[in-house]
Structure formats: C-alpha cells, structure tokens
C-alpha cells in the first residue's frame, strides 16, 4: 500500500537546498546552455518561418500574373488616331502617328530634353508610326488626356495630364510640367502586322 512506500522511503522533511547542486561543473553548464539556446533558436526560426506565408500572400496571385500578357488587334487604328486599351489593369495608349507628328518628334533635339530619348528608341524598327506607351503620367499616376477623340493634346501635340499640367510631345516625351520622365514604353512585340502582344 501507499503507506508503506511513504514510511519506507518517504519519511522525510522538506528541505529547500539553495546550494549549487553537486557535480555542476562548467561542462554541464555549457551543455545546459546549449540545449536552451538550441531550443529557443528553433522557436525563433519557426516563428520567423511562420511569418513567411503571411507576407508572400501579399504578392500578386497567379490569376493576376496570368493576365500579364495582352494581345491587341491594331488593324483598325487609322493614322492620327489613338486607342486606349488595358494591360495589367493599366491604361495603354496605342497611337498611329501621322507623318507630320513623326517629323515633329524627330525634329526635336533629344539631348535637350529632360529625359533624353529619340522617337526611334521608343518605337520598334520599321514601325516608327506605332507609339505604344502606358497611359500613366510619370508624375503621380493620373491618366493623361490626348488619346481620345477631341481631347486636349497639350502644347506639344502629344498628351496632356490635367492633374498637374505635365505636357508630353508626339513621342510621349515629357516637355513641360512636373513629370520627371517620359511616358513608359511597355515591353511589347508585333505578333503579326496587325497584332501587338504587350508584356
């Protein structure tokens, strides 16, 4: 019975012993420290790893990335016309330049511009009349006017951002106003003579 166990070995009083336990040399301290440090490190690494999914979920999901490529039929855009289309949910301006507009763009010395670029650098070889830019003002992200029929094209005949008065020329280059750089030319290629693949 329990009482026997108690009287045999358990007849003791309680004694709080505050001394360092015998046999606790430096070696044991190290081993103890090692275990504690290892356990706490594991917990730390685990907690850090658990944060990873909480952060990566913020990145664009697969369905958004899948729309990163858009194909557009440009066969119906007449010279002098522009269309607004959408790529990655952003407006894209596709403009079929008139020879006069090309001439005006080429006549401007690129070196004097805020963001020096020639029209040739901003179009594909042999397709100098196709100016494809994001319709996003490089100042603070408004959509400039000038792509739609009858919209204000600004003092340089290209695009004009009504938010803060940035004016772009016929090559989509910044000419006046606060915007720091030219309208961005996205990556694109001509899938055929009439189809452009953006992205």
């Amino acid at each position: 019975m329990a009482t026997e166990a108690q009287s045999a070995e358990g007849s003791g009083n309680i004694h709080v012993d505050a001394r360092t336990p015998a046999g606790s040399g430096t070696g044991e301290v190290r081993r103890r420290d090692f275990l504690n440090v290892a356990a706490v490190s594991f917990a730390g690494v685990g907690a850090a790893a658990a944060v990873a999914p909480l952060l990566v979920q913020m990145a664009p999901p697969a369905d958004v990335l899948a729309l990163a490529q858009t194909e557009i039929d440009i066969s119906k855009i007449q010279p002098g016309q522009a269309v607004k289309t959408v790529w990655r949910k952003q407006p894209v301006f596709i403009r079929n330049l008139l020879p006069a507009e090309i001439q005006a763009a080429n006549a401007t010395p690129a070196g004097e511009l805020r963001d020096p670029q020639s029209l040739a650098e901003r179009t594909k070889p042999g397709k100098a009349n196709w100016l494809i830019t994001l319709g996003v003002c490089t100042h603070l992200g408004c959509v400039p006017l000038g792509a739609g029929e009858g919209e204000n094209k600004g003092p340089f005949g290209g695009y004009f951002c009504p938010c803060h008065g940035s004016a772009y020329d016929t090559a989509g280059r910044i000419r006046s106003g606060p915007a720091p750089t030219n309208l961005v030319v996205p990556e694109y290629e001509f899938a055929s003579d009439t189809v452009v693949r953006i992205g």
Partner: peptide, 14 residues
C-alpha cells in the same frame, strides 16, 4: 532538474 534538486527530502515527515 534544477528545481527538483533544490527541494530534497531530508529528515522526518512534518
């Protein structure tokens, strides 16, 4: 283990 070492059984029961 340390806590168990600190309180040891010595002497008779209360």
């Amino acid at each position: 283990a340390e806590a168990k070492r600190k309180v040891r059984v010595t002497g008779p029961l209360e």
